[in-house]
Write a protein that binds this DNA or RNA. Structure first.
Length: 635
DNA sequence: CTTAGGG
DNA sequence: CCCTAAG
């Protein structure tokens, strides 16, 4: 009946603990916004262009970091005999989502503004040009569609977002049969200096099987379309640090929206790592501003929850990883029967997933534009700096001098555990250092992993496979119907596996690694893409701030604590604060000799203990009261 | 999205 | 720090 007085007499340095009522979420949320300017407008393609640029630069300046990577070229070579002289097949599947291009957006959902053109393919892939439409044909037969839909749903289920109205298409490069696949170039307005990846897959002879990825920059398409205002660039630069402060990964996506619904908003948000979300947000803002001037209603899209950025990111990454694993898989021919030579390693690479690929095309777009979109996406993602990685048991084998046998890759062993990754040859760099050096859209360095583990990299632990979402699973996964955009490229040896159509939902960004993972391996909770955040010990001043905040707000209101004391510390999520408090309490309760890390002043620890005691008691009282109340109500 | 806890 | 179940 009476407001409980909560005067902290424990002595927080003489301060009365101001009990700040917990504001309604709705209100609190409002506060979260407006943290930074929201008038930024960014052209999606500008972003793309920058990304492409960076990546290109990266590629050019970076020689291979692995033995396989000779600039712009990667090769998988299995020097073992027994590899069938088969043709490699490359399939590209795309999950398309209705989109409205920013340039034509008026409700009609105009065609994507991508323009595709034949590229100057290298001789080896010349025929690609001839194959023209072949290498990007849309499969629309009902049966397949059905499967894909199921798959999409399945995939979408992983992301937890689904939408209706998505159309799917499979692009099946016929070039396969010609043993090579070419990616024609695609030009996007504003996309500058894009590379023209030409992926040639050929199988020389029974002695070796190789996948040759060569890239060429297409001078022809270098001419840029008019770029957006400097305004855009400025904003990108200005906000870049925030966007990519912690994770600068490759981004290559084409996006637009046909749906301005909240669902759409949420979906997008979910699908993309929070760090990119902000960008997306801006992109959207841009689009919306464009559109609003045309009289189209915009929906609120200014939500920003800065503290949750990282957490969110984590979630997305997690989901992405999940999806990721569904795709890249190999199937291995383990036919011992025909294998007389026990030392032959025989297998086929069933599919290559293109993780960072994200394609969105308006339903009303033409098939042609779809093709072009895919091309562009591929171009943006594969623009070259890739190198192949080999995974055994989910662990990356880094020593190129090892023999297959030494690496545990042998016919008698578990070929199922063999996988490949296609990753950009990026330098290892601290995201934090990088961000300072490259204030704008730099998203390459991220995939760098700690240089530690020399041979086996635990990070790439077991290619996780979620049993619930087997690649080949076509069962309708019910419910959701949201589809991000999937883009899967499969490389298969002849004998097309009936269900080589594994459709993979690629969670957009973070295309660092394209991997091929064994099909039968059991899923693990470790995902290749997960990169643990770099450890950043709390400084004494941070501890001080935390203690102060908890003293006044109480332990448990982490969101508020965050807001109060770490609002600008983007790398500290409220969960982090909660965790830190936990450790602080622990630290304070153990002997000084047992403490590690930068010593926290005893007085601070004392305050921790005091506050902890106080708020614990407080909480207990609250609970008691609550119980009493409920019990009374029952009587 | 937030909290709360275990890992 | 990560991962998750609950709310």
């Amino acid at each position: 009946m009476v407001l409980k007085k909560r005067i902290y007499d424990g002595g927080f340095h003489g301060l009365l603990a101001p009990v700040i009522p917990k504001a309604p979420r709705s209100l609190r949320r409002r506060n979260l916004r407006n943290k930074s300017s929201e008038d930024d407008e960014i052209c999606a393609f500008e972003l793309l262009a920058d990304v492409a640029d960076k990546l290109l630069q990266e590629q050019e300046s970076e020689s291979s970091t692995s033995s396989t990577g000779s600039k712009g070229k990667g090769q998988i070579s299995i020097p073992e005999e027994g590899v069938k002289n088969e043709l490699l097949e490359v399939k590209v599947k795309v999950k398309v989502k209705p989109v409205v291009s920013e340039h034509h957006d008026q409700a009609s959902g105009a065609e994507n503004e991508l323009v595709a053109q034949p590229t100057n393919l290298d001789p080896a892939s010349k025929e690609l040009n001839d194959s023209g439409s072949d290498h990007a044909s849309i499969v629309t037969n009902a049966d397949f569609q059905k499967k894909i839909n199921a798959n999409l749903i399945n995939e979408a289920g992983n992301l937890g977002n689904v939408d209706f109205g998505d159309s799917i298409a499979e692009i099946h490069p016929k070039a396969i049969e010609k043993q090579c696949v070419g990616l024609t170039s695609v030009k996007t307005y504003g996309l500058k200096d894009h590379l023209e990846p030409c992926v040639n897959t050929r199988v020389p002879n029974k002695s070796s099987s190789s996948v040759d990825l060569s890239f060429c920059k297409d001078p022809f398409h270098s001419a840029c379309f008019p770029r957006r205002t400097e305004n855009v660039n400025r904003n990108i630069r200005d906000d870049d640090e925030k966007y990519f402060r912690y994770n600068n990964r490759s981004i290559a996506r084409l996006r637009a929206f046909s749906s301005r619904s909240r669902a759409g908003y949420k979906r997008m948000r979910k699908m993309m790592p929070s760090r990119y979300w902000k960008v997306a947000q801006k992109l959207k803002d841009y689009e919306l501003s464009n559109r609003s001037s045309g009289g189209v209603k915009c929906f609120s899209h200014k939500r920003k929850n800065i503290y949750m950025r990282e957490r969110f990111q984590a979630d997305v990454v997690y989901k992405r990883r999940k999806l990721f694993h569904q795709s890249l898989r190999n199937s291995y021919n383990k036919n011992a029967s025909s294998e007389s030579a026990s030392n032959l390693v025989k297998f086929s690479i069933k599919s290559f997933k293109v993780p960072g690929l994200y394609v969105e095309v308006p339903e009303t777009a033409t098939v042609g534009s779809l093709k072009r979109s895919v091309m562009e996406a591929v171009t943006a993602i594969l623009h070259g700096n890739l190198h192949v990685g080999v995974l055994v048991q989910g662990k990356k084998v880094r020593d190129d001098n090892r023999t297959l046998q030494q690496s545990g890759i042998s016919q008698n062993c578990n070929l199922e555990a063999l996988g490949f990754t296609l990753e950009p040859s990026l330098p290892e760099a601290s995201p934090f250092l990088v961000q300072q050096e490259i204030p704008s859209f730099n998203m390459q360095q991220q995939l760098s992993r700690s240089p530690s583990s020399p041979d086996i990299d635990e990070g790439f632990s077991n290619s996780s496979r979620d049993p619930a979402f087997p690649v080949t699973t076509m069962e309708n996964h019910g419910g959701k119907n949201e589809v991000g955009t999937t883009f899967t490229a499969e490389v298969t040896t002849k004998e097309p596996v009936e269900d080589s159509k594994a459709l993979v939902l690629v969670p957009a960004l973070d295309a660092e690694v394209l991997s091929v993972v064994p099909l039968n391996e059991q899923p693990t909770k470790r995902y290749e893409f997960s990169q643990r955040r770099t450890r950043r010990p709390f400084s004494v001043s941070e501890v001080e701030a935390l203690v102060e905040a908890v003293e006044t707000l109480g332990a448990g209101r982490w969101r508020d604590v965050k807001m109060r004391a770490f609002d600008d510390a983007y790398h500290r999520t409220y969960v982090d604060l909660k965790d830190k408090w936990k450790t602080l309490v622990h630290t304070a309760s153990i002997a000084p000799q047992q403490r590690r890390g930068e010593p926290v002043p005893q007085d601070l620890l004392d305050r921790v203990l005091a506050a902890h005691a106080y708020w614990s008691q407080h909480q207990a009282k609250q609970q008691a009261k609550k119980h009493q109340k409920t019990s009374e109500a029952q009587m």
